[in-house]
Amino acid sequence: NNDALSPAIRRLLAEHNLDASAIKGTGVGGRLTREDVEKHLAKA
């Protein structure tokens, strides 16, 4: 659900052409954090 993404996370996802649903969020309520996105990028 993109409504739960902060603007910074949306921008980071867009810059790397990532789909938020492909990344498991570890923030409050399962929200994506910058660390989640960076860890996903490091794996790729």
Rank of each mutant, 00 (worst) to 15 (best):
A42Y: 09
A22S: 13
A22V: 11
K39D: 10
E38Y: 14
A22N: 11
A42I: 11
L32V: 12
I9W: 06
A20D: 04
A42T: 08
G30W: 01
A44Y: 14
D3E: 12
L41T: 03
P7W: 05
L32N: 00
N1T: 14
L32H: 02
L12N: 01
V28N: 08
S21Y: 06
A44P: 13
G30R: 03
R31Y: 06
A20T: 05
T26G: 03
I9A: 03
L5F: 07
T26H: 05
S6W: 08
A44E: 11
N17I: 03
V37R: 00
K24R: 13
V28A: 13
H16F: 11
G25I: 04
D19Y: 06
A8W: 08
T26C: 01
A4N: 13
V28C: 06
L5S: 04
L5D: 06
T33D: 02
A22I: 09
R31D: 05
A22R: 09
N17R: 07
G25L: 03
R31I: 11
S6E: 15
I9K: 01
A42S: 10
R11P: 05
N1V: 12
H16S: 04
V28W: 10
G27V: 01
N1H: 14
E35P: 05
R11K: 15
H16Q: 03
G30F: 02
R31Q: 12
L18I: 13
E15P: 01
N2V: 14
L12T: 03
I23L: 11
P7G: 08
L41Y: 03
A8P: 06
R34Y: 15
H16V: 03
L5V: 09
L13G: 00
E15I: 14
D3K: 09
K39E: 11
A14N: 08
H16E: 02
K24S: 08
A44R: 09
G30K: 03
A20I: 09
A22G: 06
N1S: 14
L41H: 06
A20P: 14
E35M: 08
A8H: 10
D3S: 10
G30Q: 05
G25Q: 03
R10Q: 14
T33Y: 01
N17F: 07
E38I: 15
